[in-house]
Design a protein around this nucleic acid. Structure first.
Lengths: 153, 153
DNA sequence: TATTGTTATACTCTATAACTATA
DNA sequence: TATAGTTATAGAGTATAACAATA
């Protein structure tokens, strides 16, 4: 299963290295491809991209405020998105007893089920990931975190 | 400038490899980060993400139909987006003499200038790319194309 | 008949501003 | 005063369906 790492497509110096600009364009395509996949998977369950993203974030209950921060959008948007997910019965709001201003959002059982399905299907659309060996995954992570430092998390 | 490739963050087997699922999550973060950068850069010129994307696609004149295909959206959306770019005088429509159904969209001079600025600024936000050596860029490209086969282009 | 582009419609996402209820 | 969440509003992206012009 853990294959030895193939150093490059063919032989190391057989192909000329992509320029940083070319690599930027390929990152753009990769990002677009990722979201296209995500949108398709979400749509199969009648959800939009944002609804699917929010659902995927809710591994633990969290406040509307936290959701706004994680989605990098204004707090006023979260109200509508949660409203629509609630209409689908995938999510519910619960008042925080400690601070009555705060509403915690959490997945319903159907929400949990839906998230699992979405993640599994997305993974199958990124099946190339499964075929990477350990060293390749390590290298990929390293390169991603170098280009997008915030990922370092 | 072309450094020898550092095989891994510290030493090859010092850190455990990310699982495919973890890597999927990091791809999600990378894609989100990419578009967040893009949106910020576009906003500095009074453009939305989609408007910036369309502008970046217009390296050569192309029909509305082609734009719809490349943006992976319905043709009816392209009308509005081009309308708004035209209002900014970044783009213009020109009838195709060979097939009068077709309208070719092309950048104005200000459009060209804006695209160059956007690309340069985006590149500076992805400055990690510039710091990759040749072998790393090759490896990154290879890994990207394995995970997103369409990129192979 | 098929294709290109537009319009009309409805829904979602988006930010801003004003509001409430809490703290 | 400051924060959490909501509402109202306006603009932008989205798909569907119907349409005109052209092929």
């Amino acid at each position: 299963m853990t294959r030895t790492v193939p150093p490059a497509p063919t032989s190391p110096r057989a192909v000329s290295a992509p320029t940083p600009v070319q690599l930027m364009d390929q990152l753009a395509q990769a990002a677009a491809g990722y979201y296209r996949n995500f949108a398709v998977v979400a749509a199969k369950r009648g959800l939009t991209l944002m609804q699917g993203k929010m659902l995927s974030l809710l591994r633990q209950p969290m406040s509307m405020r936290t959701l706004a921060d994680l989605l990098a959008c204004d707090a006023s948007n979260v109200t509508g998105i949660v409203d629509r997910l609630e209409a689908h019965e995938l999510v519910r709001r619960e008042a925080d007893p400690a601070d009555r201003r705060i509403k915690m959002v959490m997945l319903t059982e159907e929400g949990e089920r839906t998230v699992r399905l979405i993640r599994a299907e997305l993974m199958s659309m990124l099946s190339g990931l499964e075929e990477l060996g350990e060293d390749e995954r390590r290298t990929f992570q390293h390169l991603l975190s170098q280009v997008f430092p915030a990922i370092t998390s």
